[in-house]
Simulated assay, not measured.
Amino acid sequence: MQRQGIGGSAVIRIRAAGSVLLVAHLLFVAWLTLRPLDVPWVMPTNLHPFAGIRADLRLGRSEAVRRIGEDLALLAPLGVLLPLAHGRLAVSPLASLVRTVTAGTLLSLAIALLQTGVPGRVVDVDSVLLNATGVALAHAALVPAARSRLRRHGARRGPYGAGPEEPAQGLTPTIPRVGIAP
């Protein structure tokens, strides 16, 4: 069990809640992105970065905001849910961001590859880029502040819910030095 400043049962509850919410979100994303669409025609595959974003911007401001916002928001909760399921407080913010964005990017790429076999769905490299950006923005906006708040809350209470003066296991006993007999 690692000591992080908040109670052991609290860490377990945070990880459990994060894991349940993560699984629920991934199931929702799978349902939303991998179900077949009944459409009369399909746009061609977009493998040129930013070409789809430029096309969206040509459609007008409101349509561009809606389309780009959908791609940013689809996997953005992973930016918070992955660190929440991991449950660590004492971690490098940059390393956490890199790990989370990498996992989000790989998941977005997996979805794009799975969509190649789904009727009515096409691969769009801009979706992968926007999904990864959404994960990064959500992580950068929420996770460092939440970790800092949890660390401050844990420092007030002490490790595993004990007071700030005394650790949860009690004081370490000391043994006085005894001289060697002649």
Rank of each mutant, 00 (worst) to 15 (best):
Q2E: 07
S9K: 10
A16E: 06
V20I: 14
L21F: 09
L22W: 06
V23E: 06
L26K: 10
L26S: 07
L27I: 15
L27A: 15
L27V: 15
F28W: 14
V42D: 15
L47W: 13
F50I: 06
A51T: 10
G52R: 05
G52Q: 11
I53Y: 03
I53W: 04
L57Q: 09
R58C: 04
G60F: 03
E63H: 04
E63R: 03
A64Q: 03
R67H: 07
I68P: 00
I68H: 02
E70I: 13
L75M: 12
L78P: 11
V80E: 08
L82C: 12
R88F: 06
L89N: 00
V91G: 05
A95V: 07
S96T: 06
V98I: 12
R99Y: 15
T102V: 15
A103N: 15
L106S: 15
L107V: 15
S108V: 09
L109V: 12
A112M: 11
Q115W: 07
G120Y: 11
V123D: 05
V123T: 10
D124T: 10
V125H: 08
D126I: 04
S127C: 11
A132N: 13
A136D: 11
A141Y: 07
V143N: 06
V143A: 12
P144Q: 05
R152I: 01
R156I: 02
G158A: 03
G158N: 02
G158Q: 01
P159A: 04
P167E: 00
Q169K: 01
G170N: 01
L171C: 00
V178D: 14
G179S: 13
I180H: 12
